[in-house]
Amino acid sequence: MVNILICDDEKDIVNALKIYLSDAEYHMIEASNGKEAVEKVRQEEVHLAILDIMMPVMDGIEATAKIREFSNIPIILLTAKSEDSDIVLGLNVGADDYITKPFNPVEVSARVKSQLRRYFILRGGTASEETLSVGGIELSDRAKTVTIDGEPVNLTPTEFEILKLMMKNPGKVFSPREIYQEVWKEPALGSENTVAVHIRHLREKTEIDPANPRYIKVMFGRGYYI
């Protein structure tokens, strides 16, 4: 049994989330503001929290910071898209992921599932020497396999090489030209679009929402990075 805390001042949204996440495995705990949420996490055994950012009494960011003082459960923030500065702040104080309002039901359950998988199965730091791991992605060069939060993903050899290149250098921005030259091992003569298409496919396979990638990020006008 997994306990999920859903915290939003809008009752209807809490209800909708409950319906989307209705699963035999999950048990929902409700809260209507940040303060309540922190108390619930403290008192009951909560495995994952979904917190709205804009709430009365205590907002989601503050609640995240408070929860992080005593717990390392996955926290997903709920936010309206235009408040991207809030997202950055939330991730910095300890949130693990975020969902933008209005949300897509499939996306919500996928994110919840992914966070729970990492929390229970991986618990971080199981990477061996042959495997590269960044966030929830693990890449085994020997077995030529890639898993996202423990779920295996099917990649073509080119996609695998691109992913490997970027995972070896996390944070480095690769221009399409550099990627082409590294992966195809030949000078890029106007073949940069091919790289962009491959990256797009790679994102579709690895990301829950390819338009808002969490792993393979697009630095538009410069390149790609993990």
């Binding site: 962009a196 797009r200 538009f220």
Partner: peptide, 19 residues
């Protein structure tokens, strides 16, 4: 603003919209 390569804008847009 950051220094960006105008070429990359075009190839990335084309790539993202290929499908």
């Amino acid at each position: 603003p950051e220094p960006c390569d105008a070429n990359v804008f075009l190839s990335q847009s084309a790539g993202e919209y290929a499908e």
